[in-house]
Design a protein around this nucleic acid. Structure first.
Length: 596
RNA sequence: GGCCCGGUAGCUCAGAGGAUAGAGCAGCUGCCUUCUAAGCAGUUGGUCGUGGGUUCGAUUCCCGCCCGGGCUACCA
């Protein structure tokens, strides 16, 4: 059902005339720049349902449209019908009914679902970097979008807090830490632990070189293969065994260092605006899944191999081991177990995992296994797969220290933004500058990360990416701030521009109509983005709406418009646009400063 | 080798069976005594990797090839 009365009417007429005409065939689009018209109907798309040649369909459609009182003109070009609406009708169906427009994004109650989304999933051996930030921002914005269209969404984190990589930083700290703490050094906990992870790898590198020197015959073996040939590697492996055996000193060290990291993560999450409904710890879930394997084995879903390993035949994807020959679990076992735990805890109708694309196959396999095990929700699992973030210098590698640290990046963005604010408004108090810098800087970063299609391997060029002009978050925030400023002045002048006090038919300028039309697409954009589980369409839309506003702002003075009636009408239009822009940004988890 | 993803303007990226392929940045030209110039307007720049096929119509769909990335563990 179109927002526009004309097109709903057209849909009904066509459906009445042609029995096979689909319910949502009429989809008005924006009329391309340079063409005369406000909206356009592409008759190529539905001519076949009426069994008409496209040009005949267009002629008939145009005729119907011309007969409607809302239509000023309808021109046929090929099989497109370009429709010019009377301003009163155009505005009546869009900006004049702001609440309806904002609610157009909501799904019918029957299609709202209980959704569980898992993202972030950091390791507790190092601080988060830009790659994690992309994950976090994708996860939190998708959660916000799904909530925005009416779903019941729970956000969860699954922290990888155990394993050999955790023991690496623990071991380095135990040997070289001299008892230092975040408090004694003033270093944020996750960074302090991360420093020891880097130190471990440095020392390990030296030992590996030494081993290679004394054993030339191992030259072709990689670091992984030589890990246990080093003293440090063996010690780390022993530490993992001790941890699993519950050796008190090891467990105490593990607990202490994890607490430091969690404190650091909390700060980072708070700053970016994430709140998880629950955080699962791998140390508490890694043994899950084994019982399911046993059940699946007796049900014939899994097979026991001669060597004792349990496998599952996934056809084209191959044979996957789900239990080692020694009876211990692999990653897949754990993921099966934690998935079942999540379903038990939340009874979701849909499950989403935000995880990098290197795990595409893993998730295809996981979902296939769930389906084989007969779970009804197995068809409602979705892996939101995203590409890596590369730097101009190449890939980011934690071990080699070539990462863009999340906290540093936030600082840098906020500093640059507040410096830009200070330049524009030097009188502003420092605290206010800092607050604005935080909103604008973080907004710019989030917006930049969300502008890309998740699957693309994106390039982060610090010089080029840290910008506040052009296709950026601040561009959209700036449009909001401009409108807010106009609204403040209107309030001072006590101008009443409540929608019912406004003569909307006065808004007939090209930029006014274009702005109202763009605003009218908001609900459809939200729904499409939610359906695709991809917010990048919303990002694109907000840029277009902000751009349409800036053009309007240039060409149509609001407060100094020729007549008081026009002032009110333009004010009401601008105010409606600000609500939409702010709503859209909020759906991307980006806030808006009052002043820029 | 097999599977998956990508190759669109100098750069970073949109688009998608339909009307002349878009945006931002970079380059060049204009616009602040006018509601905030983080802005607006104009302009330069493209055989949409390549060869076939399907179609009234392909950059978009299908097949082959080339290039880049990922995955292909009893790692997580």
């Amino acid at each position: 059902m179109s927002l526009f009365e004309v097109f709903s009417a057209l849909q009904q007429q066509l459906a009445g005339r042609y029995p096979d005409f689909p319910a949502d065939a009429v989809q008005p689009e924006r009329c391309p720049a340079g063409m005369t018209g406000d909206l356009t109907v592409n008759c190529f798309r539905f001519a076949r349902f009426a069994k008409l040649a496209p040009d005949r369909m267009a002629a008939e459609t145009a005729e119907m449209l011309r007969a409607h009182p809302d239509v000023e003109d309808a021109q046929v070009i090929k099989a497109f019908v370009n429709v010019t609406l009377r301003p009163a009708a155009l505005l009546r169906d869009t900006a004049a009914q702001l609440e309806r427009l904002l609610n157009a994004g909501l799904l019918p109650v029957a299609s709202r679902r209980k959704v569980l989304i898992e993202y972030s999933a950091p390791n507790t051996n190092k601080p988060q970097h830009l790659g994690h930030v992309r994950n976090n921002v994708l996860g939190m914005s998708l959660a916000a979008l799904l909530k925005r269209v009416g779903h019941d969404v729970s956000e969860i984190n699954l922290v990888n807090d155990r394993g050999i990589h955790i023991c690496k930083s623990m071991l380095a700290y135990a040997r070289y830490g001299k008892g230092e703490t975040p408090a004694s050094t003033g270093i944020k906990g996750d960074h302090l632990v991360g420093n020891y992870y880097v130190l471990f790898n440095k020392v390990l590198g030296e030992e590996l070189s030494a081993v290679r020197g004394t054993h030339p015959e191992w030259a072709d073996r990689d670091d992984e293969a030589l890990f246990e040939e080093t003293e440090l590697g063996r010690a780390a492996r022993q530490m993992l065994r001790d941890w699993e055996a519950g050796v008190p000193e090891v467990c105490a060290l593990w607990r202490k260092m994890n607490d430091w990291v969690f404190e650091g993560f909390d700060q980072t999450y708070r700053r970016i605006g994430i709140h998880f409904d629950h955080t699962y710890l791998e140390s508490e879930t890694y043994l899950l899944g084994k019982d399911v394997i046993a059940a699946g084995l007796s049900a014939g879903v899994f097979q026991k191999r001669d060597d004792g390993a349990v496998t599952v035949d996934l056809g084209k994807m191959g044979i996957k081991v789900v239990l080692r020959s020694d009876g211990t679990s692999v990653y897949m076992t754990q993921d099966i177990g934690t998935t079942l735990r999540k379903v038990e805890d939340y009874t979701p109708e849909e499950l989403i995992w935000v995880v990098g694309d290197e795990q595409n196959l893993h998730f295809q396999m996981l979902f296939a296994i769930m389906k084989k095990l007969g779970y009804a929700w197995a068809d409602c699992c979705f892996h939101l797969s995203y590409g890596m973030v590369n730097l101009p210098t190449g890939k980011m590698k934690s071990r080699e220290g070539t990462v863009v640290d999340a906290d540093d990046l936030f600082d840098r963005m906020a500093e640059l933004a507040s410096a830009a604010c200070a330049e524009r408004a030097p009188e502003t108090p420092a605290a206010e500058l800092a607050a604005r810098g935080e909103i604008i800087g973080l907004g710019a970063l989030k917006f930049m990360l969300l502008k890309f299609n998740p699957r693309t391997t994106m390039l982060f060029d610090p010089e080029a990416s840290i910008r506040f002009e052009g296709d950026t978050g601040p561009y959209v925030q700036y449009a909001c701030a401009r409108i807010a400023s106009i609204e403040r002045k209107a309030a001072e002048q006590k101008i009443d521009y409540a929608p019912d006090k406004v003569d909307w038919s006065l808004l007939g300028e090209a930029t006014e109509k274009k702005l109202a039309i763009e605003a009218g697409f908001y609900g459809a954009v939200l729904q499409l983005a939610a359906e695709r589980r991809d917010v990048s369409g919303l990002v694109e839309y907000l840029l277009n709406l902000a751009k349409a506003f800036n053009q309007f702002y240039r060409e149509c003075p609001v407060l100094v418009a020729p007549s008081p009636e026009l002032v009110r009408a333009r004010l009401a239009l601008a105010a409606a646009v600000r609500r939409i822009l702010a709503d859209g940004l909020a759906t991307l988890t980006i806030s808006v400063p009052e002043v820029m």
